[in-house]
């Protein structure tokens, strides 16, 4: 298993857990469900070369993943957002693959943290 600290800011996550209390589980579930949809959407818009949609969905995922302390996932989303913005989709597939992998890892770590 990967080291959780390579993917998530553990200290910040601990704080978040304390703040959320009982709602933490809901938050994790909501995040996972919501992000899964977004990752699928990203797949679609990259295939369709829809730069504007790519920028928006990636932007949203960047924000929400940063909020759950998933800094690496957030960074990958940012790279896709920039590609959408600059309308240069070269390498987007590659980033998207990494992102999908990263999302899987983060989901597992978060689920284990409950």
């Amino acid at each position: 298993m990967n080291n959780p600290a390579d993917h998530l800011d553990i200290g910040a996550l601990q704080d978040l857990k304390e703040i959320m209390e009982n709602e933490f589980e809901t938050l994790v579930n909501t995040f996972i469900l919501d992000s899964r949809n977004k990752v699928e959407e990203l797949d679609l818009v990259v295939q369709q070369r829809d730069c504007d949609a790519l920028r928006k969905v990636a932007h949203s995922l960047k924000g929400s993943s940063s909020n759950v302390c998933a800094f690496r996932l957030s960074e990958l989303a940012r790279q896709l957002e920039m590609m959408g913005k600059e309308e240069t989709l070269d390498g987007a597939d590659k980033v998207l693959t990494s992102l999908r992998q990263e999302f899987q890892t983060v989901s597992e770590i978060l689920a284990n943290n409950l």
């Binding site: 978040l16 703040i19 959320m20 709602e23 919501d34 949203s60 929400s64 909020n67």
Partner: peptide, 16 residues
């Protein structure tokens, strides 16, 4: 906020 998880976090902090 259209993002469910973001909204949930913010709402919890503010309510607290």
């Amino acid at each position: 906020d259209d993002n469910d998880s973001d909204r949930l976090i913010l709402q919890t902090i503010v309510r607290k």
